[in-house]
């Protein structure tokens, strides 16, 4: 593949920027270049990776989910409640978390497809409900919670987080590329009317996409419990906005119809190393938000100018 062709991909820029960032931080602090450290970094931030992969099908459809943080809080409260009664090994925790998340996410999807309202409004309402209920349960029954992470099998030692990210990435790739649901996601993102005419069932597609998003939230709640031995009621308060940033940096078209697993993974990695890299490079914490904001705007503006340039070229070619 020629270099020029490579740069036509939407993901190529974020890939390039990630490498530049990684090299430049590594030069200031050599510890950063250690691959073991990078794997650990992915393990600690696995929630971001997994949730970003979970919202990807949803955002390709042009939907949003503001209730992810709420779903994580809800699942983690339920999981630690269950963990206070039964002994649970780590894989089982992830499985139960996934099931709870899936059900909660499908509830979102069912409400959206039944009442035909914008996904923003419904998930806003459910966000309030999930957060409120889980914080209430947590505060009133605090003494009943034994922390589930105590039962973690020590031998896993971070591998389970990395494995989950890998499995989730493969699963998302397979779903998007090789299932009917995946094709319907791209179809609805591109043109809703056309997709309906093609015979895709809209409400089924919506429920599945929101269910998948809930599943990722459930899995990440379980992983947070396993990694940090701690309940994550407050830990992911504004994760929804961060996820939107990640997925867009990964090349997603905000109006729907385009987005890849590879781009999302790279973008999550970019945000992860940006966050910890700024600390490594000894940049004061007051600069972090500003830099992330500036990078997003730059990336977006660049995309816009590129598209205009393309349009102008086409016009010149035609006349």
């Amino acid at each position: 593949m020629s270099i020029r062709k490579y740069f036509k991909n939407r993901e190529s820029y974020i890939f390039l920027m990630t490498i530049i960032l990684w090299v430049s931080i590594s030069t200031t602090n050599l510890n950063f270049a250690n691959p073991r450290y990078l794997l650990e970094l992915i393990g600690v931030n696995s929630v971001y990776f997994i949730c970003a992969l979970g919202v990807l099908p949803l955002m390709i459809k042009g939907h949003f989910d503001l209730s992810i943080g709420g779903m994580i809080a809800f699942t983690s409260v339920l999981l630690s409640a269950i963990g206070s009664w039964f002994f649970l090994p780590a894989p089982l925790v992830i499985l139960i978390g996934a099931i709870i998340g899936l059900l909660v996410g499908m509830l979102n999807g069912a409400l959206i497809s039944k009442f035909k309202v914008s996904s923003v409004v419904v998930t806003l309402a459910t966000m309030y409900i999930f957060y409120g209920v889980s914080k209430y349960i947590y505060n009133t029954f605090t003494e009943h919670f034994r922390i589930i992470g105590e039962y973690k099998i020590q031998d896993y030692n971070g591998i389970i987080e990395n494995m989950s990210v890998l499995i989730m990435a493969l699963l998302t790739y397979l779903i998007l590329k090789h299932t009917n649901f995946g094709r319907s996601v791209y179809a609805f993102g591109g043109d809703r009317k056309l997709a309906i005419q093609k015979g895709y069932h809209e409400s089924v597609s919506i429920i599945k996409a929101h269910g998948y998003c809930g599943l990722s939230a459930g899995v990440s709640a379980a992983l947070h419990l396993i990694t940090f031995n701690q309940n994550s009621v407050d830990a992911y308060l504004n994760i929804e906005f961060e996820l939107i940033i990640i997925v867009i940096l990964g090349g997603l078209h905000i109006l729907g119809g385009y987005g890849t697993v590879f781009g999302t993974l790279i973008a999550s990695f970019f945000i992860t190393i940006l966050k910890s890299g700024l600390v490594f490079a000894r940049i004061p914490v007051f600069w972090h938000d500003m830099m992330i904001g500036a990078i997003i705007i730059l990336v977006i503006a660049y995309g816009v100018f590129k598209e205009r340039y393309k349009k102008r070229n086409i016009k010149v070619g035609e006349t």
Partner: peptide, 21 residues
């Protein structure tokens, strides 16, 4: 620039907050 408003204001949300911080 005709950028989607959600993306734009998400970016400026971080930017303005960062400047204020």
């Amino acid at each position: 620039l005709e950028v989607s408003p959600i993306v734009t204001t998400l970016g400026t949300m971080m930017l303005f907050k960062g400047v204020a911080l």
